[in-house]
Nucleic acid binder design. Sequence first.
DNA 1: ATGCTGGGTTCACTTGACGAACTCAGTAGG
DNA 2: CCTACTGAGTTCGTCAAGTGAACCCAGCAT
Lengths: 151, 151
Amino acid sequence: MSDASYDRSRCSVAGTLAVVGEKWSLLLLREAFLGVRRFADFQQALGAPKAVLTDRLATLVQEGILRKEPYQADGSRQRHEYRLTSKGRDLYPTLVALMQWGDRHLADGPPPLALVHADCGAPVRVALVCDDGHEVAGPRDVRPHAGTPTG
Amino acid sequence: MSDASYDRSRCSVAGTLAVVGEKWSLLLLREAFLGVRRFADFQQALGAPKAVLTDRLATLVQEGILRKEPYQADGSRQRHEYRLTSKGRDLYPTLVALMQWGDRHLADGPPPLALVHADCGAPVRVALVCDDGHEVAGPRDVRPHAGTPTG
DNA sequence: ATGCTGGGTTCACTTGACGAACTCAGTAGG
DNA sequence: CCTACTGAGTTCGTCAAGTGAACCCAGCAT
């Protein structure tokens, strides 16, 4: 994927999905945000086929979203683990937005996971804000504004 | 999809992706947010195969994200168009988050589309905030906090 | 040398995406 | 009435992607 699919001209959503839109990629990143770093742990948490995980991890490393770091445990040989880069960490709001929608609209009970601000303990959510500091309610309060047209 | 795939127990990201995670779904919604409502216009904007669009639109209607509304133009027979429901509009922050990441990390130039606050004209972005009003910088300032454990 | 473990690769099979061709309802023109 | 046209699909053959089980390999322990 990565460049062949989708058309990025209308906006960057397509570009982002070309990088993280394949099956399992975003779930893999969710696990990464929850602290998972090793192949076997990703596999156990997700239940995805190994071949797919191998492929997705390689893609994410190649895209600079994860990076391989060597480590070694107890009496085992040296291996590597997968860690988020800052580019990867920038996907956090996207994951939280997906989670928040699911919590609100698919709930069979209380949300399975809540996020709280480490400093103050208050619940964390995603919001749309403008640079003048107003909170924006939704798409109706936003005007899209095309930049340079399709090149 | 919709229920067979993924495991929703760890958090709602999987649930949301089960609904909108198939290829073209989120791009279709992007177009909906840009004002597209008719089958042929979705097809032209996206270039996706008709069979896939038919399927994705039906899924989104079934999930209550889009709704079919009758309309008729000039001297044509009555048809229906697809419009966002409030459940669908709640996906706006997710789309903006995806777009923002692409703008930041995939840029070959200026972003193809900018969003401005209709009231004040200032640029709009997604942010993580806590209920005490602090802006949260990233995953490191957030503690996950499991609710009811895996059923 | 034998077995165990983490991190893969290979392979047969099923599911999903693709694009071209076909369908069908209604409207317009002749 | 017959024909052509349009929007919104459906059908179909082909190709790509995801799935699950089996296999591989390095190194540590026995």
